[in-house]
Amino acid sequence: MRLAVYGASGYQAKLVLAELSHRSLDVVLVGRDAERLRQAATTVGLADHERRTAGIDDHGALVAAFSGCDAVVNCAGPFVDTGGAVVRAAIDAGCHYVDTAGGQRHLKTVFDTFAGEAERAGVTVVPATNDGCLPVDLIAHVIADRVLSIAGITTSHVIVGGGGPSRGSLRSALRTADALTTGGLTYDHGEWHTGLAARHTSVILPGTSEPTAMARFPLAEVVTIPRHVPVDHVESLVEATLSARLGTPLSAELIDTLPEGPTEQARLGQRFTCVVDATSADGRTTRGLVQGTDTYGTTAVIAVEAARRLAANGAKPGVLAPAQAFDPADFLDFLTAYGVRWSIDADHQP
């Protein structure tokens, strides 16, 4: 099994490479700058692994760089600008594809543009294999298997600590500032819409008795969940204070002066909570809960495992949501070894 990592010298990519190194998997590091690739390989203990250079605007070089690999992990953002080129090259190289993206616009473009090409090539494309979308998408499917008729799903995300976003995350926020300020897409009655008001503005989180203020936010699961769960409405929320911070992006010049990303100590002190509230047609709520630490480290584990499963076991060709490509409960159970806890409360009282 051979896995390629594109954008291999970036902050998130180096965590992906470290995870691959821990598992002793064969890796090809791919990126635009040979010296930065060399430094990244040395940093994570992969100095003896192959490195290939390919720019995002050179389709032939990208295809050649992915040639002979079983799957590609794309970590090169902002994905709204670069993701499509890497997806197309992976398909043409006959490689399965995953990425660490979280933006709705990139995801919807991948689904709308590449589904047919991937299916014809026998390639599986699974975007947004990250700490938020993948476990939330999976647990929504587990809930749907238990609840006969779901009218609406609201996902709520809260992150405490962690030392702040990486430079890559901040650049992506800057590139998609319009979606951050408007709240992005909401799924409603068979279509994705912009500009819809959130049905919920607060949530009572586990272990609390008072509601936490929330704001609509353009998260990836709004694009993925309706593809495998029969549901009328899906919206995504984050804690209102986080939404306000990210909705006022920093300038490109200021971002360039910041640290590459949070320190390991800061990441390990982070706590994240993802809540999936599914309301049935008769008004009852079933709550799914995912909790863990270290969003960037968890994303690395998830992306590597998703690529490994595609390379080892395959999946239906085409562009798929995580729950369409992987066994939901099995993948969630796998993550428990990495400190991710999940549960479902069928009798939740909102």
Rank of each mutant, 00 (worst) to 15 (best):
R267Q: 14
P259Q: 11
I225G: 03
T263N: 13
L242N: 06
A215V: 15
T212Y: 06
P230H: 13
E260K: 12
H228G: 06
G247Y: 04
T212A: 15
P249Q: 01
D256N: 09
H228W: 13
A252F: 06
L246Y: 07
R271D: 08
S243L: 08
Q270K: 07
I225A: 03
A220T: 07
T212S: 14
L268N: 14
S243K: 12
I255Q: 00
V229K: 00
F217G: 01
R227H: 14
T241E: 14
H233Q: 03
T212R: 15
R227C: 12
E221Q: 11
F217P: 00
S236T: 04
G269E: 12
L268W: 08
T248A: 07
T212P: 02
E253Y: 00
L258R: 04
M214K: 02
R271Y: 11
I255D: 00
P230C: 09
V222T: 11
G261T: 05
A213V: 10
R216W: 03
L254G: 07
E253P: 01
S236M: 04
A244G: 05
D232P: 03
L250E: 09
P249E: 04
R271E: 08
V223A: 08
P226A: 09
G247Q: 06
D256Q: 08
V222Q: 03
G269D: 10
H228V: 12
D232E: 14
L250F: 05
A244H: 10
T248W: 06
G261P: 00
V222P: 01
V222I: 10
V238P: 02
E253R: 01
E253M: 05
H233P: 01
I225C: 04
H233M: 06
F217T: 02
R271L: 14
E260H: 14
L242S: 11
L258K: 05
A244W: 03
E239H: 11
L242Y: 07
Q270T: 05
L254F: 11
V231K: 00
V234N: 05
A213P: 15
A266F: 14
R227M: 12
A244S: 10
A213G: 14
A240S: 13
P226M: 06
G269F: 02
P259V: 05
G247H: 06
F272G: 00
L254Y: 10
T241R: 15
T224S: 11
A244N: 07
V231P: 00
E221W: 06
L237H: 13
L254I: 09
L219T: 14
Q265H: 15
R245P: 05
V222D: 01
G261D: 03
H228M: 02
L246M: 07
Q270G: 15
G261M: 09
L258Q: 10
H233F: 10
T224P: 12
F272P: 00
P226Y: 03
E239W: 01
P259G: 08
A252L: 06
